[in-house]
C-alpha cells in the first residue's frame, strides 16, 4: 500500500485515495472542431509509461481534493506532489 502525501492533509495510506489516471490531459476548448481521430486520442489514448508517470489522485476519504503525483510505475517511488494547474513535476522532491 502506497503512502501518499496529500498537499492539504499530509501523508496518508493509499486506501484513503482514489486514482484518477494520467494527469495533464486538458479538455479541448472546442471539441466540435476536432476530427474523430483527435477526439478519440483525447478520450481513449493514454501514455501508460513504464517509469515516470504524472497522474491524478483524489483524497476521497479525506479532504476530497484532487492533486497531481509524479510517480515511477516500476519502483512506485513518488517523486513529486503538486497541485492541479501546476506544470508537470513542479515542487519539491518527496522524501
Amino acid at each position: 500500500m502506497l503512502e501518499i502525501r496529500c498537499p492539504w492533509c499530509g501523508p496518508r495510506d493509499q486506501s484513503e485515495y482514489s486514482f484518477g489516471g494520467e494527469a495533464h490531459i486538458t479538455r479541448p476548448l472546442e471539441p466540435e472542431s476536432l476530427s474523430d481521430q483527435q477526439w478519440g486520442d483525447y478520450l481513449f489514448n493514454r501514455k501508460n509509461p513504464k517509469g515516470r508517470h504524472a497522474e491524478q489522485w483524489c483524497h476521497s476519504a479525506g479532504c476530497g481534493r484532487w492533486f497531481n503525483v509524479l510517480r515511477d510505475t516500476v519502483t512506485y517511488r513518488i517523486e513529486k506532489i503538486y497541485k492541479v494547474g501546476q506544470a508537470p513535476g513542479t515542487g519539491d522532491r518527496e522524501g
Binding site: 484518477g20 486538458t26 479538455r27 491524478q56 483524489c58 476530497g64 481534493r65 484532487w66 492541479v84
Partner: peptide, 8 residues
C-alpha cells in the same frame, strides 16, 4: 462534479 470543477 467535484472532479470536473477541481481539475478542469
Amino acid at each position: 462534479l467535484e472532479r470536473w470543477q477541481q481539475t478542469e
